[in-house]
Computed example of a mutant assay.
Amino acid sequence: MMLKQDDTPSNSGISCDSGHRRKLNINEENLKNGLAQLVLCIIKLLHELLERQAIRRIEGGALSAAEIEKLGLTLMQQGEELNRLRQAFNLEEEDLNLDLGPLGRLF
């Protein structure tokens, strides 16, 4: 579950009782989507790294034409599966671009 600046206790899942203790109200659907968002973000990061490594290998002349074709198809299928999973969890592309605070956005 990610909190945004405009989240209030009623919609963020966190509420305060009269003793000012924070109580976490866990919504199973929010928890599932939050976990899916995190996992898909990590998978997208790995996919981006694999694409960059593939480009370096291609530009370095380390791959044959057949290997380049196979690598391109594999990366394209990976990207399609990532999009399919993202849509299955009702996540937008921007949802996988985490805000790293002072470091900026992930992608």
Rank of each mutant, 00 (worst) to 15 (best):
R105Y: 12
L100C: 11
L31Q: 13
N25S: 12
L50P: 01
N30P: 03
L45K: 00
L50Q: 02
D95T: 04
L40P: 00
G34H: 02
I26R: 11
L49V: 07
I68Y: 01
E92R: 12
E81Y: 06
L103K: 15
N97P: 04
I26F: 10
L40N: 00
R21S: 15
L96D: 01
D7G: 05
L85K: 03
L100E: 09
R57P: 02
I43P: 00
I26W: 13
N30I: 04
S15I: 13
A54H: 02
Q53V: 02
L3S: 10
Q87Y: 11
G34V: 00
V39P: 01
I55H: 04
Q37S: 12
H47Y: 06
R52I: 01
G19D: 15
L40R: 03
E28T: 15
P102E: 11
L3G: 08
E80S: 11
A65H: 07
A36N: 12
L91N: 00
E94N: 12
I55T: 10
D95Y: 02
R86L: 06
R57C: 01
R84T: 10
L49A: 13
Q77F: 14
R52D: 02
L106N: 05
M76P: 03
G60H: 00
G60V: 01
D95P: 03
Q77M: 15
G101E: 09
S12Q: 06
F89N: 02
V39H: 00
L82E: 04
E29Y: 09
N90W: 11
L73W: 12
G34F: 00
E48M: 09
L71Q: 08
E29H: 14
R22D: 10
E80L: 10
N30V: 07
L24M: 13
